[in-house]
Amino acid sequence: MAIDHVGSDRKDSAFQKQKGALKTSRIPIRIQPAEKLPKPPWIRVKAGSYNSHFSEVKKLIASHKLVTVCDEASCPNRGECYGNGTAAFMIMGDKCTRRCPFCDVAHGRPDPPDENEPEKLAETVALLGLSYVVLTSVNRDDLKDGGASHFVDCLKAIRAVSPETRVEILTPDFKGRMDKALDLLCAFPPDIFNHNLETVPRLYLQARPGADYDFSLKLLKEFGNRCPRIPTKSGLMVGLGETDEEIVQVMEDLRAHHVSMLTIGQYLMPSRDHLPVLRYVSLEAFEKLEKIAHKMGFAHAAIGPLVRSSYHADLQAKKAGMK
Results as ranks from 00 to 15, higher is better:
residue 95 K to E: 06
residue 96 C to P: 01
residue 96 C to T: 09
residue 96 C to I: 01
residue 96 C to K: 04
residue 96 C to E: 02
residue 97 T to G: 03
residue 97 T to N: 09
residue 98 R to M: 08
residue 98 R to E: 11
residue 98 R to V: 11
residue 99 R to Q: 12
residue 99 R to W: 13
residue 99 R to Y: 15
residue 100 C to L: 06
residue 101 P to G: 10
residue 101 P to D: 12
residue 101 P to A: 12
residue 102 F to S: 04
residue 102 F to E: 01
residue 102 F to W: 04
residue 102 F to D: 03
residue 102 F to C: 05
residue 103 C to E: 12
residue 103 C to Q: 05
residue 103 C to M: 07
residue 104 D to S: 11
residue 105 V to W: 15
residue 105 V to A: 10
residue 105 V to Q: 15
residue 106 A to N: 02
residue 108 G to E: 15
residue 108 G to N: 13
residue 108 G to C: 09
residue 109 R to G: 02
residue 109 R to F: 06
residue 109 R to I: 14
residue 109 R to Q: 14
residue 110 P to I: 08
residue 111 D to V: 09
residue 111 D to F: 13
residue 112 P to F: 11
residue 112 P to H: 11
residue 113 P to Y: 14
residue 113 P to H: 09
residue 113 P to I: 10
residue 113 P to W: 09
residue 113 P to A: 06
residue 114 D to N: 15
residue 115 E to T: 03
residue 115 E to K: 11
residue 115 E to Y: 01
residue 116 N to M: 14
residue 116 N to R: 12
residue 117 E to M: 04
residue 117 E to L: 03
residue 117 E to F: 01
residue 117 E to N: 06
residue 118 P to N: 02
residue 119 E to R: 13
residue 120 K to Q: 08
residue 120 K to V: 02
residue 120 K to W: 04
residue 120 K to H: 09
residue 121 L to E: 02
residue 121 L to R: 12
residue 122 A to K: 01
residue 123 E to S: 12
residue 123 E to F: 08
residue 123 E to A: 14
residue 124 T to I: 06
residue 124 T to M: 11
residue 126 A to C: 00
residue 126 A to R: 05
residue 127 L to P: 00
residue 127 L to E: 15
residue 127 L to V: 10
residue 127 L to R: 15
residue 128 L to D: 15
residue 128 L to S: 12
residue 128 L to W: 07
residue 129 G to W: 08
residue 131 S to G: 12
residue 131 S to F: 11
residue 132 Y to D: 05
residue 132 Y to A: 01
residue 132 Y to N: 04
residue 132 Y to W: 14
residue 133 V to Q: 05
residue 134 V to Q: 01
residue 134 V to A: 10
residue 135 L to V: 06
residue 135 L to I: 08
residue 137 S to R: 02
residue 139 N to D: 15
residue 139 N to S: 13
residue 139 N to F: 03
residue 140 R to F: 05
residue 140 R to C: 04
residue 141 D to I: 03
residue 141 D to V: 04
residue 143 L to N: 03
residue 143 L to Q: 00
residue 143 L to Y: 00
residue 144 K to R: 11
residue 144 K to T: 14
residue 144 K to H: 07
residue 144 K to Y: 02
residue 144 K to G: 06
residue 145 D to T: 09
residue 146 G to M: 05
residue 146 G to C: 01
residue 148 A to W: 04
residue 148 A to L: 04
residue 148 A to I: 05
residue 148 A to K: 00
residue 149 S to L: 03
residue 150 H to T: 11
residue 151 F to W: 04
residue 151 F to D: 00
residue 152 V to H: 01
residue 152 V to W: 06
residue 152 V to A: 13
residue 152 V to E: 08
residue 153 D to V: 07
residue 153 D to G: 07
residue 153 D to L: 04
residue 153 D to E: 12
residue 154 C to F: 14
residue 154 C to W: 13
residue 155 L to V: 05
residue 155 L to K: 13
residue 156 K to N: 12
residue 158 I to F: 03
